[in-house]
Design a protein around this nucleic acid. Structure first.
Lengths: 216, 216
DNA sequence: TAAAAACTCTCGGTAAACCGGGTGTGTTCC
DNA sequence: GGAACACACCCGGTTTACCGAGAGTTTTTA
């Protein structure tokens, strides 16, 4: 019998060990590689995938170097035959939306039962997609809420300004930094407040964090 | 041979399954209960601990209902013979400081090897403490950095005001809410900005998030 | 019990943010 | 080829935030 070839990527070793324990009981899976960064997975695929293709990469979202979102993008672009399953503890609508947009094959939260994980793996290897109900909920909620397509709600310039705002710079400072008029930055502030439906700088800052523009 | 009686609490079922797989291989441990909230653990201990004492509770920090910090506090107060081991993915200095202050018996990050976890469990059951090197680092860094004892840097009232500030309320609104003078709230703003060494509302908001006073 | 902190309040002034309305470019996409 | 949008800019006016420099009261703690 031909075994399915899997890769697991997660920077929490204990979780990785746990996953390994679970999958090791299943004879049909061959864990080719475990990694704690996305980069290691990408590197492996880039070198070896043509000779011995990988069927499925199971990955976390948060990882150093190359996170799950980037890793998925990389795989879908350069190794389209390799399936991807995201297993993550964070499942905000933005992450879910980005990943589905990037054609991820499945998404299961870490608080799922192991049975569901096995079901997801099986489904994906058959060529179908698998998303946990909670992920679907988040996705739909995101679609119809004010957070709708938060990703491209803001233009590049707006994000740039928002970042500086959240970094505690004043309008004047930002204007100087970007070689723009103070009035321009003031316009951006207005637009941001209205677009993001917040009241003031506090709301803007929270959004900047949510968008990953600034560190907490 | 008398088996050690353990409880595991984590709201990520997959991690829980993983931990179970790892510990099930060891005959000396008896997993009496697994829980996905701190409350369930507390409840179990309160009812059964006198009859059949639990030797060790392994717990995550982030859980609904009753988190790891609160759970540890509860155990140390009402069930002092029961040891506690925190296994968590977040290990900011504040959390570590609070837990050590509350006399936790050990702290291991989730990205530790399973061997280390088993070592930690063994050490604690012998009556000693176990902290991973990375946790010690965080603790020491926290001691000597400007984040020093962030926990009690702010008074209760200051935290209350900071929370409202980060929730996008104006000074006047906060004054009305707390039945205080507008001037008082302005004083708080000033003190907070100076204490937290930030420049404006953006910085305050970020701190409020860091302190867990507001949602992102 | 005395000192330290926390909590409350005052005032006067400046700087910055926020609001509502605009104008005009260029690009992108049906 | 026109609508939609990003991008850049302008203005007057109001509100809020921020700064400095205080002071009195209660509560906690050494």
């Amino acid at each position: 019998m031909e075994k399915y070839r899997l890769i697991i990527a997660d920077d929490h070793k204990m979780f990785l060990d746990g996953l390994l324990s679970i999958l090791a009981q299943k004879s049909e899976y061959d864990i080719v590689l475990t990694a704690n960064t996305g980069k290691n997975v990408a590197k492996y695929l880039d070198i070896n995938n043509n000779k011995e293709p990988i069927d499925l990469v199971i990955t976390d979202v948060n990882m150093p170097d190359l996170n799950g979102i980037e890793l998925n993008k990389h795989i879908k672009k350069l190794h389209p035959k390799t399936k991807t399953l995201v297993v993550s503890m964070l499942h905000d609508s933005m992450t879910v939306q980005t990943l589905t947009k990037d054609n991820v094959d499945g998404y299961v939260p870490k608080n799922a039962e192991k049975e569901e994980l096995l079901e997801a793996i099986k489904t994906i290897l058959k060529g179908n997609k698998y998303f946990s109900q909670s992920i679907k909920d988040v996705y739909l909620k995101g679609m119809f809420s004010n957070e709708q397509s938060l990703i491209d709600l803001l233009s590049k310039r707006e994000k740039e300004v928002l970042k500086l705002i959240a970094q505690e710079h004043t309008t004047q400072e930002i204007a100087d930094t970007l070689f723009l008029s103070k009035h321009t930055i003031e316009s951006y502030r207005k637009n941001l407040i209205s677009k993001l439906e917040v009241r003031n700088l506090a709301g803007l800052t929270k959004y900047a964090i949510k968008l990953g523009l600034v560190e907490e």
